[in-house]
Design a protein around this nucleic acid. Structure first.
Lengths: 177, 177
DNA sequence: GATCACATGTAAGAAGTTACATGATTCT
DNA sequence: AGAATCATGTAACTTCTTACATGTGATC
């Protein structure tokens, strides 16, 4: 089993490979910045993945010191396995960001069509979440303090936003067209 | 400094106090379930907070074995400090859930009016996030693969949802009225 | 020649995860 | 009595955080 960060690293370091520093800069300069750019997170993660055989690395000799990691065949397999895993559980709150990453990586690493099918699966999960939260609100809304009710409402709105996004993806609408 | 989980524990164990098991059940049975209900997370956290003087605990003698934690005066101060802290950083992606908790705890522990003021501060943070992401999309949208653009779009929509929610709170609209 | 940015790494500590251990109490 | 559930805790492991250490190449 690989973590979300592992998957992102494997994804980024395909083709020509990437150094730890390259990845840190990507995390700093793009909205990928959800992940920590701290060296204490990146370098050990790369080293671990190499130990597990998912990366091979080469120290560049000319110019600046630089160790370039490149995804191996085994790394390919691991990444494909991560993509194919079932959508863990609802409520999805905690893995929402992981699902987003999976969408992007699936589109790039497999195909847009497959990413759309994944979005369709996400849609179902989000719909279940909305239903569960709305049921909870109907059951306990009256007994809850105002602020808790409001927070629950925010949760519902968040899932509905995701739901609509999935539908737009499936229908080829919006920015992602 | 206390963590978000610490704050939630301190918040829940006011008044009559709560046992670790009580808290685990709360995390299991309500959409508070964002937090882990594993004993290996809860019990050590309670013990740590007691060591720091934010809880006092008493083992109940009659009936089932049960250790009840209760927030101390120092715990009160710590929780108030947590509430009053500045909104860490934008992008807010990573602390969004923390902000939600802060809203609820502020409303219950301080006042609804204070929670509204907090929502107003959140609104500013989310607005800044939307602006930053839209600028990034305008700058790099063309060069990005379709799926990345779509993911960025989702990020923007998520922040806008939060933005609208804050405005509704401030205007006393919606479920939280 | 000094300083800044590049680049990699490690060390110490905090916290969460899964799994296990243990025993009391209530229910049937 | 036996089983299920209540309830607390610990152990081993993994990973992340902050901070430090180190050295090279580019820039002024």
């Amino acid at each position: 089993m690989i973590s979300t960060l592992d998957a992102v690293l494997l994804f980024l370091a395909g083709g020509d490979g990437k150094s730890g520093y390259d990845i840190r800069r990507l995390f700093q300069s793009t909205p990928l910045g959800v992940y920590s750019d701290s060296p204490g997170a990146i370098y050990p993660a790369l080293a671990r993945l190499e130990t597990r055989g998912f990366f091979s690395s080469k120290a560049e000799t000319e110019g600046r010191r630089r160790r370039v990691y490149r995804r191996t065949r085994a790394g390919d397999v691991a990444l494909r396995g991560w993509i194919a895993a079932p959508i863990a559980r609802t409520p999805t709150t905690r893995n929402a960001e992981e699902l987003d990453m999976r969408f992007v990586i699936t589109a790039q690493f497999v195909s847009w069509g497959e990413a759309k099918r994944f979005a369709a699966r996400c849609e179902k999960a989000y719909a279940a979440d909305v239903e569960a939260l709305e049921a909870f609100l109907a059951d306990h809304g009256q007994d809850m303090p105002r602020a808790s009710r409001a927070a629950l409402d925010l949760g519902i709105r968040n899932y509905k936003t995701r739901l609509r996004w999935c539908r737009d993806i499936i229908a080829d609408k919006g920015v992602g067209k």
